[in-house]
Write a protein that binds this DNA or RNA. Structure first.
Length: 954
DNA sequence: TATCTGGAAATATCA
DNA sequence: CTTGATATTTCCAGA
């Protein structure tokens, strides 16, 4: 542990650990203590573990830090501090990146983070503590001289670093908490992955590379450099860890974690109550520590520390704007808002922000990883080089940042690399398309850390999922990244409660390497030209982290309860001739991971028709699972705010009912005179709390010839919206549309980005009542939160969807560094215009389709909406509404206007002939919603601030 | 013997 | 505060 490490540690140490946190704290402490001890004494495995972690962390941290700083700078983290921004970003992607980088470290670190969690302050202590020496990261963040040296610029972040830590924590501390996660960590860390992860970071390197020569040199070169750098950094940091390479991980992991785990059982204590959970529980702890806690990182950092700095760095208005966004969210978050909320908001924001910036961004997220494990490293290097090498568009910016090493530079450094994991990316661009040839089964029982592996995810048709990159004619192999993403209505992001788990053994034919990016385990799988760039995913299992562990994390806003659906998210980074890197992403269909849900909840995988004239009467066949003779199929039309405008139980053919198929007669729509397609939802219900997710269905005007009713029709409106979306999209679209839309459900997503989004959302997450609730809420809440900061860019994107996609390339390319930033910069002008002018229309249209379908759409849209049109509130409101029906009700007025064009038409103009029944959603959700709503509001407030700032900027 | 599973008891959380 | 319903997490045991 290089001296550097120590310094850092010191810093952290300085911060007193927060007693407040409960378990987490303890865990953190344990860990930390271990680390220390280990570091000092070099306890075997554990130590190594830590080391690794630390190393990882270190590596990651530096990057992260840098990112953070950068992000801040870029974003303008301005508002908040770069740190904050970063953090947030990190939260998700960027955050992750950074933190993540620590990735594994993140987990480990996370504890540290947590501490910060609340306020940066605190966290630092903890985390640091744990990893002290190891975590040079810390140092890095902090400045560890060594590190810096090793990693010139990026490292610099140090100054930033300090702040960052907190932020980082914010992410997910998976590390800390999860520690419990430890498990996760375990899985992550413990397994080879841990090592690997650390090393794997190569990504980081890639990232690094980006800026390195971003534009300039060839990918490889850059990449390599980046790697080297990263490596160096890692090394430096890791030196200790290097050893890790050994295998410490395992032992370490287990041991360390085990202990932690043991504690878990008790978890209950730690666990928070869902309703309150995130908020309450977390609060106190977090709060106490740092008032700002939640956002702690983000907020605290941002505002306090960073603001000043940030500004300096950021110079650009864009950055400022971004920052503002970020900041706002963060800020607001801090105080009242529960940590979770904050995080969400923050996270997203950050990421977004970061994205904006070219380089830095959060990459951290990505970069975080920079570390590569030696072994794997070598193996993957070439691959990675190819992949990562590319610099992203952003790079250029970095230079700028570099100039200011500490604050921004660091960030930028980091960020340059790859887009954060929470960024939305398109599934195809130009000649390239990343496609899931074989979808995973809809159910896969995830295993707990306390259990053995439950094997790899299997394909619905038997065998295993298959992913292929089309249109890639180069001879250089690429790396396919896989991580577990969310399946709720909100934007796709790494799932806080699930981690990918690398499966090895005789039955596994696909080699893989684990790395950790910002608290998210990422499986790297080679994509070889000789295999037609096709990969059989037989090496990916799913690890379930205890809810209590994750929810305790400082920044975590999501609720684990009933949040059991995930998606496999695949990414590939394709180096371009111009030195940039094109990042594509595809998400699988949702996978139900809980034993119970898988056994009881009805699940609709396919439907024989997606649309039909309002007259109804046609029978469609639903394919799926857990259908019962007395299963009911309910068609629902939702208002933008989430209220059920119309509900109708469809007739089912009980005789034809089979566990895997259900015959349903399409009920006539309430309004037989619609002039444009109306999107509704339906779900299968086996009982009070046993509902499937919402499925999309489109009613077509009676007289209209039934062409293929595809979602696209519905979306058309969205297209019209285009302007706005586009404007927005430039930034956001790419991500959203890309991610959500394209990849996920190619088939389903006929429509453009939005469509895809909606579909996914609807399909995926929109769960009617049961699970949905949480999802909805959480998602909504999250979205809201997220949106605030990010929304501008990210959210909007969704709308952009298809159209955007083409544009996407830009953004995409840009991402590497930080989509948002770049895009923001470019877009801002447009965005503002579009927003202002088109918002309403485009919005509505877009939304509309969505709104009907479910919260999701709205959410996505909202972001745009918000940004463009109204202050945060409106947007937020809208979002909330969608997601949170009840809450929405209250607020709905504001939102609604925007949202439903079609609805309005139908209801208003046409005046639906059929009585409209407004249905309230299940009570269960209420509390959650309320909580979420509160959070949202808070976020909104924060976002509002941001918006205002933005406006100013504009 | 180790791993993979399916099942289900033990806990927790909600209402 | 108790109770029943749910949901999550830990254990068991067979293959």
């Amino acid at each position: 542990m290089p001296s550097p490490g120590l310094p850092t540690s010191k810093h952290f140490l300085a911060g007193p650990p927060d007693p407040a946190r409960g378990r987490e704290t303890l865990v953190a402490l344990q860990r930390s203590s271990c680390p220390f001890s280990s570091s000092s004494s070099m306890k075997s495995a554990e130590e190594e573990h830590y080391n690794y972690a630390s190393s990882n962390i270190n590596a990651g941290l530096p990057l992260n830090v840098a990112h953070s700083s950068l992000s801040t700078a870029c974003h303008g983290l301005q508002t908040s501090n770069p740190v904050i921004s970063i953090v947030p970003s990190t939260n998700h992607p960027s955050g992750y990146g950074g933190h993540i980088d620590g990735g594994a470290s993140g987990y480990y670190l996370s504890p540290n983070v947590r501490p910060n969690g609340a306020p940066a302050l605190e966290s630092p202590r903890i985390e640091i503590t744990s990893y002290p020496g190891l975590h040079h990261n810390n140092n890095q963040f902090f400045h560890d001289a060594e590190v810096e040296e090793a990693i010139p610029n990026a490292k610099r972040s140090p100054s930033t670093a300090t702040l960052n830590l907190p932020n980082i924590e914010a992410y997910r501390d998976p590390s800390c908490l999860s520690p419990a996660s430890s498990l996760s960590s375990r899985s992550c860390n413990s397994e080879a992955s841990s090592y690997e992860s650390n090393y794997s970071y190569p990504y980081t390197s890639p990232q690094t590379s980006p800026w390195q020569s971003p534009c300039v040199s060839p990918k490889t070169t850059d990449t390599e450099e980046g790697y080297q750098r990263s490596m160096v950094a890692c090394t430096l940091l890791n030196s200790p860890r290097h050893s890790p390479s050994t295998s410490p991980r395992t032992s370490i992991t287990e041991e360390n974690w085990l202990s932690a785990r043991n504690s878990r059982p008790s978890s209950p204590c730690n666990k928070r109550k869902y309703s309150l959970n995130g908020r309450q529980t977390s609060y106190s702890p977090h709060h106490s520590p740092t008032p700002s806690p939640q956002s702690s990182p983000r907020v605290s950092v941002t505002d306090d520390t960073w603001l000043g700095n940030t500004n300096q760095y950021t110079s650009s208005a864009i950055v400022a704007a971004i920052n503002a966004l970020t900041t706002d969210s963060t800020i607001d978050m801090n105080d009242g808002i529960p940590i979770k909320s904050r995080k969400t908001a923050i996270d997203h924001t950050p990421s977004m922000t970061l994205k904006t910036e070219p380089s830095g961004e959060d990459h951290g997220t990505i970069s975080p990883t920079a570390d590569l494990s030696p072994e794997e490293f070598s193996g993957f290097q070439h691959i990675r080089k190819g992949n990562f090498c590319d610099q992203y568009l952003s790079v250029p910016q970095h230079p700028y940042q570099w100039a200011k090493p500490k604050s921004l530079c660091p960030t930028s450094y980091m960020s340059p690399s790859l887009p954060a994991l929470d960024w939305q990316l398109p599934s195809h661009s130009g000649p390239y398309e990343l496609r899931i040839e074989e979808q995973p089964k809809s159910h896969h029982r995830a295993h707990y850390e306390t259990e053995g592996s439950r094997g790899a995810v299997k394909a619905s048709a038997g065998g295993h999922p298959v992913v292929q990159l089309h249109g890639y004619l180069e001879s250089e192999p690429l790396t396919l990244q896989l991580f577990i993403g969310t399946a709720d209505d909100r934007l796709l992001r790494p799932h806080a409660f699930y981690q990918v788990h690398r499966i090895t053994g005789k039955t596994v034919s696909t080699t893989s390497h684990e790395t950790i990016l910002s608290n998210t385990k990422v499986l790297e799988i080679p994509l070889l030209p000789e295999s037609k760039m096709k990969a059989i995913i037989d090496c990916a299992g799913i690890l379930k982290l205890r809810n209590s562990d994750i929810e305790l994390r400082k920044g975590e806003t999501d609720i684990g309860r009933k949040n059991t659906r995930v998606r496999l998210v695949f990414r590939v980074h394709i180096p371009q001739s111009n030195g940039r890197t094109l990042s594509l992403q595809v998400a699988s269909n949702p996978i139900e991971c809980s034993q119970r849900s898988a056994q009881e909840l009805p699940l609709v995988e396919k439907q024989s028709a997606d649309s039909f004239p309002v007259i109804g009467g046609k029978k469609i066949i639903l394919s799926g699972h857990n259908f019962l003779q007395d299963s009911k199929v309910i068609f629902v039309e939702k208002a933008p705010d989430g209220h059920h405008v119309w509900e109708m139980e469809a007739k089912t053919d009980k005789e034809m009912c089979k566990p895997n198929s259900l015959v349903v007669e399409i009920p006539p729509f309430r309004n037989q005179r619609i002039t444009s397609p109306v999107q509704v939802n339906f779900y299968v219900c086996n009982g009070k709390r046993k509902r499937s997710q919402y499925q999309l269905f489109t009613y077509l005007p009676a007289n209209v010839p039934i062409i293929k009713t595809e979602p696209s029709d519905d979306y058309e409106p969205a297209q019209t919206c285009g302007p706005m979306t586009q404007g927005l999209n430039p930034l956001s679209k790419p991500y959203y549309s890309q991610q959500i839309m394209m990849p996920p459900d190619p088939g389903s997503c006929l429509v453009a980005g939005f469509t895809s989004c909606q579909q996914r959302n609807t399909v995926m997450s929109s769960s009617p009542n049961s699970s949905p609730k949480l999802h909805d809420l959480s998602s909504s809440a999250y979205k809201c939160i997220t949106n605030p900061g990010h929304s501008h860019l990210g959210l909007q994107q969704p709308a952009g969807g298809v159209p955007t996609v083409q544009e996407v390339p830009r953004s995409i390319v840009v991402h590497p560094s930080s989509p948002e930033q770049s895009s923001l910069i470019m877009l801002q002008p447009q965005v503002s215009q579009h927003l202002s002018s088109s918002c309403s229309l485009g919005y509505q249209q877009t939304l509309y389709p969505n709104s009907p379908s479910s919260p999701v759409p709205s959410v996505t849209q909202e972001p745009t909406y918000l940004q463009s049109c109204s202050p945060t509130h409106s947007s937020i409101m809208g979002q909330q509404q969608h997601q949170l029906p009840k809450v929405q009700r209250n607020e709905s007025p504001t939102n609604q206007p925007l949202s439903l064009p079609e609805l309005h038409e139908d209801s208003n103009h046409n005046l639906a002939p059929i009585p409209v029944m407004i249905k309230r959603e299940p009570e269960e959700l209420d509390q959650l919603y309320l909580d979420d709503v509160n959070e949202i509001i808070r976020n909104d407030l924060s976002s509002t601030n941001v918006h205002s700032e933005l406006a100013i900027l504009d």
